[in-house]
Design a protein around this nucleic acid. Sequence first.
DNA 1: TGCACGTATGAACAACCATTCATGTAGTGT
DNA 2: ACACTACATGAATGGTTGTTCATACGTGCA
Lengths: 118, 118
Amino acid sequence: MGHSSATTFRGADVDLEMANQIAEAMQALATPSRVLILARLLESSCSVTELAEAVGMEQSAVSHQLRILRLLRLVVGERDGRNVLYALHDSHVGVLLEESANHVAHLRLADDEAAFAE
Amino acid sequence: MGHSSATTFRGADVDLEMANQIAEAMQALATPSRVLILARLLESSCSVTELAEAVGMEQSAVSHQLRILRLLRLVVGERDGRNVLYALHDSHVGVLLEESANHVAHLRLADDEAAFAE
DNA sequence: TGCACGTATGAACAACCATTCATGTAGTGT
DNA sequence: ACACTACATGAATGGTTGTTCATACGTGCA
């Protein structure tokens, strides 16, 4: 049951097409609003209105961003009465978010060490 | 010697400031040119001119993007005579790239399964 | 010192994008 | 059918950004 690549990742494998796909996918996390939306959905799936007030955006803006995240296969929406319940597309999205957060934490750590040295 | 967070990642930890930081960091991977540059540097460090012809961009464009990647702490540059040798800032950047590539591979896999089912 | 090479940077421009506003569509209850 | 709620979408827009062109800076060499 592996979803991780068995072979070690080499930069030479990244051709122009793959670079485009990676860039397109990563653009999903390139805006604070989408990060907030995904982070909220990582906690639990919820409706658009809940999402809107959770992240402090207008409903329309949230719907627009959800559309993008849907097309990028990061979230899925399912009707439930008048509401549409959104959820992360799969667990791998959570991994991506976590790795990103891990990265910024890594940077902050380096900052602290630099401040310590001066 | 852990650089991975010990506690499990929760979406509730992501406030507005952290979302901004994550988004800013992930914007580095949100363009094909930068992905190609990072992928090339993952293979080995090299000069700006080498980088330019490796990814098929003009030297000026590469320098501009390198400046961004430098500010985001994803690469480091060191003078060597007339050249400036660029390298990934640390190994964690490679992890980020790999995880991104992993994600798109995951998507392609899902596509294949969908085509299989129809 | 002068020149060539490698790199960085500022300005300009075109393309892209996130948000807002207005409006449309779908579902629920009366 | 009507009203109301929840969500989606098109157009307009202000802001951002990647690239190009021109030019400046730094370095080694003759």
